[in-house]
Amino acid sequence: MENLPSPETFCRYLWHEYLEKQNYTLLDHCFLPETTIIGTGEHEVSRSFEMFVQKIAAEISARTTAFIIEDQWYQSQPVSADCTLVIGELRVREQTENPLEFIGRFRFTILLRQMGNQWRVLHVHQSVPDPEQGTDEFFPHRLMEQSNRQLKQLVEEKTRALEESYRRMEYNARHDSLTRLLNRRWVEAQISAAMQEGRPGVMIMLDIDWFKQINDTMGHPLGDQVLETLGQAILAVFPDALSGRIGGDEFILYLRSDRDQINPLSTAGIIEETNRLMSVWETLRKQKGLTISVSASLGAARFPEQGQQFDQLWYHADQALYQAKAAGRGCLRFSGEKDERLNGF
């Protein structure tokens, strides 16, 4: 469908296709899934577009008579940055030779949302005029005010729902679903941005020892619980660090000297905090009934001394991690420094 120049023209197109041409395919590309419809007859209220389609499916298959629009009137008014309200009235009659043909008129309110360079229907309200209403008042002032309030509330509710949906989508796009830590793509971007600020920092790579054996002998559900509790422990002990799950049983932390609770990122301070991490992790496992013994190996590298780019620092931290595994696992090793064993792990 080509872009339409105005909200009025778009609504004129809708009624023409629906009433005169009986083109119901427009329902697929002109309406949003969250569209609500208030009409007349059997489908008086549809709380969603899906409900509306279900209600009129039988009517569409049985309908044999189209209508002719004899007169129509439209007026639009913006109600928000991306929503426009269109009100109007149609006078229609059946395309039939029957002398008892139907002739009638109805009023409508259509709320449109601008999606890029196209319009989409967000809400439709059809009504039959009040025969006792004065000929000089198209919409009574009181009813118009009430309609405006309802539409404003509807726009606000749908906007809040969309914003919440966008927030959830953004969160899911940036976080690992199991551990709630940042995912690999986003944690790398955040650490790179922190490094560009120039503040001293420490990157820590963490790998669970013998994790494949845990999955193979005790099952992946238990392995997932081990990963989940580690994510919880990291968030509890390092709430201000940039922490993420790289993949599988590999994790990464980035500590900044003026932001994290380790100042000035001394080797002794980091050893103390990583020991506390292991202790909290063990406590969380026990709370879940996981009595298996689990340890982790860690490798650390300092910024900017051992790398001024993410990949460079990661390389040194990863090499330190391999040195920790070679030293017997369950320990922390700094790149270029001696092996440090975690207390009791």
Rank of each mutant, 00 (worst) to 15 (best):
K158C: 08
K158L: 13
K158H: 13
T159A: 02
A161H: 10
E163L: 14
E164L: 11
E164Q: 11
S165P: 00
S165N: 09
S165C: 08
R168C: 00
M169D: 05
E170K: 09
E170C: 07
Y171T: 07
Y171V: 07
N172S: 14
N172H: 15
R174Y: 01
H175C: 06
L178R: 10
L178T: 02
L178I: 06
T179G: 08
L181G: 07
L182D: 02
R184G: 08
R185G: 11
W186S: 12
E188K: 14
A189D: 14
Q190I: 08
Q190R: 15
I191G: 06
I191Y: 11
I191S: 07
A194Y: 09
M195F: 09
M195H: 13
Q196Y: 12
Q196T: 12
Q196K: 15
P200C: 05
G201Q: 00
V202E: 01
M203P: 08
M205L: 10
L206P: 03
L206G: 02
D207H: 07
I208K: 02
W210Q: 10
F211V: 00
I214C: 07
N215C: 01
T217L: 09
M218D: 08
G219N: 03
G219A: 08
H220W: 09
H220Q: 04
H220N: 00
P221R: 01
P221E: 04
L222S: 00
L222W: 01
G223I: 00
G223T: 06
D224A: 03
V226L: 04
L227M: 05
T229M: 07
T229D: 05
L230T: 02
L230Q: 01
G231I: 04
Q232K: 14
I234Y: 09
A236I: 02
F238R: 06
P239V: 13
D240V: 09
L242K: 10
S243W: 14
S243N: 13
